[in-house]
Nucleic acid binder design. Structure first.
Length: 376
RNA sequence: GGGGGUGCGCCGGAGUUGGAGAGCCGGGCCAGACUGUAAAUCUGGUGUCUACGACUGAGUAGGUUCGAGUCCUACCACCCCCA
């Protein structure tokens, strides 16, 4: 797996690059739709690849381990074969579930013990075990097992947690290095920076993560409720330390404005549930701001969801029709808005790449942020 | 034509020895929230007004009572049974 930087913006720190994987090339900056349970909720693989041209999607180790289970995924020949998505995939390690299912787990040096949210059964997630599971799932990019700390998080806890994440990383790395992919193509392990909102911890963590010779690096533990200024400040500090020649993945971020600002700080990869979750709840993104398609005011607006979009779904269906589908609780409604929001995010990334390459990124970004700020 | 039953919010229910009510539960409707997905979920609002307080209201019109959604009378509407 190989990453090439093909453009570097100035005076912003935005970059454009190419990450080559066994399942295809990812052009960065990129947004990766989240498909936790081997499915980007409500969106067909065909629509992902043909209509909105997603380059890579996510899966989740914790969820896939619980259901359908690694036996089934191995039998299928890996996640790509199982869900039919033949482009790159990335699996999160379950570190986020350490955060979001906090009341169902206990953290020990050995790992995290979960009681399943499905049937209550007990499971140990150790760094080694999580590497083994991700080998079996077979995503192109796999993530280290970390603790995603909550916000707020006191300094003492953040520091202790960061060190635990670093020790877990060492164990992940060793296991990863001593095992082979199961399906004949290369996998890459991305380590994750932690340190909550503390500059010194973030610097320290970034240095530790940078010392690994990984294909790419990730920034975790952000967008968990902290102010945007903290998100940007921490991202900036970490990006200044992580190696330039490797892709940087900011986990779980974010809003369209978050993405634009973080691209300007040197981030290359993003994922977030916002576009798909909001879509299912009727909130759609447009260049004019976000709108709630369920609102009464769209009932007779027969204009397309987004006439400027580059994909079929967003230009084909009208606001009034989609509002009607939501009012009627038709499944097609959330399906259309999910595709639309993802298309919006991917269009944004596409234009960002072009702007970075032609040198007009910063003014374009600033104009767009001014326009979208407070609304996205 | 005769007998019986039922009538309160946008809709459907609940609400009996007559005892505080703009007032319960669903739905609908109107809004809001959502950041490595326990989320096709959750939260709030939904009589009127001169609006941190007032006013009006239970099919309609009367009556009994300290007090009526609840009891009585007439009428109206709808439902059921008999002709």
């Amino acid at each position: 797996m190989k990453f090439d930087l093909i453009a570097q913006d100035t005076p912003s720190k935005a970059r454009a690059g190419r990450l080559e994987t066994a399942h295809g090339t990812i052009e960065t900056p990129i947004f990766m739709p989240v498909g936790t349970i081997a499915s980007v909720k409500g969106v067909h693989q065909h629509e992902l690849t043909q209509d909105i041209k997603a380059q890579i999607i996510l899966g989740n180790t914790y969820h896939l381990y619980l259901r359908p289970g690694t036996d089934i995924l191995e039998k299928a020949g890996g996640l790509h074969k199982f869900n039919g998505f033949d482009k790159p995939m990335l699996t999160d390690s379950g570190g986020y579930q350490v955060f979001s299912l906090a009341h169902r787990r206990k953290i020990k040096e050995e790992g995290a013990t979960f009681s399943s949210h499905i049937d209550g059964s007990k499971h140990l997630f150790s760094p080694e075990g999580v590497m083994d599971i991700q080998r079996k799932i077979g995503a192109d990019i796999i993530m280290a097992f970390d603790e995603c700390t909550p916000y707020p998080c006191d300094y003492k806890y953040a520091k202790r947690s960061m060190h635990l994440t670093h020790r877990w990383l060492k164990r992940c790395w060793n296991r990863f290095e001593s095992t082979q992919p199961l399906y004949g193509y290369e996998q890459a392990l991305f380590p994750i920076v932690q340190g909550s909102v503390y500059k010194d911890l973030r610097k320290q963590s970034a240095q530790v993560i940078a010392s690994y010779d990984s294909v790419g690096n990730a920034i975790g533990g952000l967008s968990v409720g902290e102010p945007h200024e903290d998100l940007y400040e921490m991202t900036d500090i970490v990006c200044s330390i992580l190696p330039k020649e490797k892709p940087r993945y900011l986990m779980g971020v974010g809003t369209p404005v978050n993405l634009l600002e973080c691209i300007a700080l040197g981030v290359d990869m993003f994922d977030c549930v916002l576009p798909t979750r909001n879509a299912r709840h009727g909130l759609i993104y447009t260049r004019e701001g976000k709108i709630n398609i369920k609102n009464n005011k769209w009932k007779d607006d027969f204009s397309p969801l987004d006439p400027a979009a580059t994909n079929h779904t967003s230009t084909f269906y009208s606001k009034a029709y989609v509002r009607h589908l939501f009012q009627s609780k038709e499944l097609l409604g959330p399906q259309i808005t999910s595709i639309h929001n993802l298309a919006f995010y991917l269009d944004l990334m596409r234009e960002a790449r072009e702007r970075i390459k032609d040198g007009s990124f910063l003014t374009w970004k600033n104009d767009l942020v001014t326009k979208l700020d407070r609304r996205l």
